[in-house]
Design a protein around this nucleic acid. Sequence first.
DNA 1: GCACACCGAATGAACGTTCAATAGACAGAA
DNA 2: TTCTGTCTATTGAACGTTCATTCGGTGTGC
Lengths: 190, 190
Amino acid sequence: MEIIAEKKKAILESTLKLIKENGFHGTPMSMVAKRAGVAAGTIYHYFDSKDTLIMDLFAYTQQQVQEAVHKDLREGMDLKENFFLRWISRCQFYIQHPDVLFFIEQFVSSPYYPRCPADQNDRIQNDIKEFILLGHQHGILREVDHKLMSIMIHSSIMTAARVHLDGRVQLGDKEFQQLAQMIWDSIRKL
Amino acid sequence: MEIIAEKKKAILESTLKLIKENGFHGTPMSMVAKRAGVAAGTIYHYFDSKDTLIMDLFAYTQQQVQEAVHKDLREGMDLKENFFLRWISRCQFYIQHPDVLFFIEQFVSSPYYPRCPADQNDRIQNDIKEFILLGHQHGILREVDHKLMSIMIHSSIMTAARVHLDGRVQLGDKEFQQLAQMIWDSIRKL
DNA sequence: GCACACCGAATGAACGTTCAATAGACAGAA
DNA sequence: TTCTGTCTATTGAACGTTCATTCGGTGTGC
């Protein structure tokens, strides 16, 4: 766990916010610099280029998500509880951090994504996958490729969070439970 | 149904392909012009700006998707058959037209999307929604907001197609059936 | 001779990146 | 303590490129 220099962090955070507001293109380096309270040149002290800034930002957000979800986990839960907790806390994280959600969405459907190392790609779904493997061992989940399953789950989480943030549908406790139940029913053996 | 001038269509199609290859930024108007076999200025005869070109392209792809799905529909299917057919044929359309999928993905997670009229936003899920309403009337589907449900369904389709195209998981007939079944089980009353 | 589709070089603004210059921190030498 | 040199962090004006857009002009059909 590397300690990130204050200015470096400021740069990452401003980029995150600006990309949410203006998209990848809409955010020139000069704007990032201004928002972060540094000079344009300073960015290049920490990052080789705009591209690597964005790639690094992806790794940075990944780490944030993972930490947030792990914080909520407890011992001694059965698989279903475990699933509900993971699904809901991840969804809530995205809702509390819209900039992270928007950035990840934009990143994964951009030409940047395929360029980053496969193991990092997958880290998004890593703890989901670990959970699925367990479920398969117990014979509770359907016999579906676990990679496919984990991606489908993660996509459902992001979609739900997105819909809520867009204001298209308000998600409260009841809806979280409903959604988690829906996805749970889609992966478990009936 | 407007008849689209040949050059206009060529411009739309090249933009679609180029955006798939290079993303929104990576595709300058000059490149679009070259690929479409027209002069740069010609683009501005048909479109006010790059922005409106992209917005129009969105409407254009929407229409393509809708036509493709409707072609497959037959009369006298029960709700489950209906759902399977819609889910699978839409997924297959995206797989056969990766550029459409990539463009839509990129578009909806960009600052362009919120800028287009709400009714057009929703047309993506329009026929899905119509189906859901029917299912609700028959008491077959869960009591979940139909807007939410239709978005979740559409997202599952796009995700599946995407995973297949990325080569992360090969989808054959068996997998399509499995997936449609999963999603079906997530929306129906158990 | 008017209207329309089309061309493509020219324009000007925006943007990523560079770099010479400055300031500060720190270590060792005197 | 003071001086000196080195290294790093930072600055922001300047550079060169790229790119969306414009516009004067050409060709074609009516």
